[in-house]
Computed example of a mutant assay.
Amino acid sequence: MQRLHGEKLRLCKALESIADALPNVDRFNCLVTANSIVPLLRDTHLFEETVIFPVYEDALTLQEADFASIRRLRTEHIEDECFADEVTEQLLGIGHGRPVENAEALGFMLRGFFESLRRHVAFEHEHVMPRVIFADPQTRAFDTGKPTSR
């Protein structure tokens, strides 16, 4: 999960760099970035929803077990993937030679997307990861590099 968070944050940095350079962007960088967005989010979300979230839910106490946070995170995954499609479409167009017609609007779009991703990563890092690490000995061993008895 830490590796995936790092990849998401690197994506955010790349998107921020593009937004900061508008309207004079590196077209090749737009293509490279655009082609990484959807696969990264799809793979990350699948891993989180099938591996991380079940461990997190199991680690919650009865008082915490309304699972509202997990429902919100799953909803954010859907929203992020829809937004990712729009961002990808814009960056691919620019990468293939379409002019940046409205730099302010595109910058606003990019910033909205990467700031949302950063907030999502921050929440998972602060709230989900500590529970998962302490709940699952296999995860603890993976993070520390120590073998487990499992």
Rank of each mutant, 00 (worst) to 15 (best):
M1Q: 02
R3G: 05
R3T: 11
L4R: 13
H5V: 13
H5G: 10
E7W: 03
R10N: 12
L11W: 08
C12L: 13
K13V: 13
L15S: 09
L15N: 09
S17W: 07
S17K: 13
A19N: 00
D20C: 07
A21E: 05
A21C: 04
L22T: 09
P23M: 09
N24C: 06
N24Q: 14
V25P: 00
D26V: 02
F28K: 12
N29D: 09
L31N: 07
L31H: 07
T33W: 00
V38I: 14
L40M: 12
R42I: 10
E49F: 00
V51G: 01
F53S: 00
P54Q: 11
D58S: 08
D58K: 15
A59V: 05
T61A: 12
T61H: 01
L62N: 04
Q63Y: 05
Q63L: 08
Q63I: 04
E64P: 06
D66Q: 04
D66V: 01
F67S: 03
A68S: 13
R72D: 12
R72E: 12
L73C: 11
R74C: 10
E76G: 02
E76F: 02
D80W: 00
E81A: 04
E81Y: 05
C82G: 05
F83Y: 15
F83H: 11
T88H: 06
Q90F: 06
Q90I: 08
L91M: 09
L92D: 00
I94E: 03
I94F: 04
G97T: 05
R98N: 11
P99A: 14
V100E: 04
E101H: 14
A103C: 10
A103G: 13
A103S: 14
E104M: 10
L110T: 03
G112Y: 11
F113S: 06
F114S: 02
S116N: 04
L117T: 11
R118W: 00
R118A: 15
R119G: 08
H120N: 06
H125K: 13
E126T: 10
H127V: 12
M129Q: 05
M129F: 10
P130A: 12
R131W: 03
R131H: 07
I133E: 03
P137V: 09
P137M: 08
P137G: 01
P137A: 14
T139Q: 12
D143L: 10
T144E: 09
G145R: 08
P147I: 02
